[in-house]
Design a protein around this nucleic acid. Sequence first.
DNA 1: ATGGCTCTGTTCCAGAGA
Length: 272
Amino acid sequence: MRIATFNINGIGARLPALLQWLEEARPDVACLQELKAPQEKFPAAAIEAAGYGVIWHGQKSWNGVAILARGTQPVEVGRGLAGDPSDEQSRYIEAVVGDVVIAGLYLPNGNPAPGPKFDYKLSWMERLILRGEQLIATGAPVVMAGDYNVIPTDLDVYKPERWVDDALFRPETREAFERLMAQGWTDSLRAMYPGEKIYTFWDYFRNAYGRDAGIRIDHLLLSPSLAPALKAAGVDRDVRGREKPSDHAPTWIELDAKKIPKVAKVKAKEVP
DNA sequence: ATGGCTCTGTTCCAGAGA
């Protein structure tokens, strides 16, 4: 089972790029971020024609998240994070696909920091940490995937010293991410490639992609019950080098279907 | 330290992204 996350940076401008990548990579599940499209302008018909069931949470101009599932309809669990009824930004959506719970997220950027946007980022992370705890407590196999806007370590950025004051790399941001990880999540790409330089984002400026001046901010976190199923992981870097690309590249994992726990079985065991 | 690039809205620029 192949699960991917891709910050598409505007699904209107990049639908052809998305469809081409879907056809080539054929992920079973794809989490999309930064749709930048209102709910009614999401190109559901084109995505369904490509063979994918889809749920999405749009918003005018900004943000927006979706979950695509090849050959099946994702069963929505919910959208938005609890804890702030005044939050109207579309950044979180959750669904069940097959035996796996998929949480798709677009964590706030938070720049400039300090400031209200950074405060919003940190409070959003606290709400995500609460949801993470709940998800792990269910014992279900969960993938929490998306654009985290978090550079976890020095290894994940081409020039750490230039990012120390950035909201993606500030100590408060990394500390909150570490507390999330401490719940028991596995950082898939880092688990598969310890010590290696892997980037998922290259900005549009100064030929960042050509110079490989990137950062790793798109993550697929696995719950403890799912971590043993991790078989492979990667970044479709070449997508970033195409015409009119997103500034992110698709990032993916491959799970061994035989090692994905069946929640129903777990429950059956609990009942004598 | 700044600016560099790309997109959206209803545009002849401003704001956001990271």
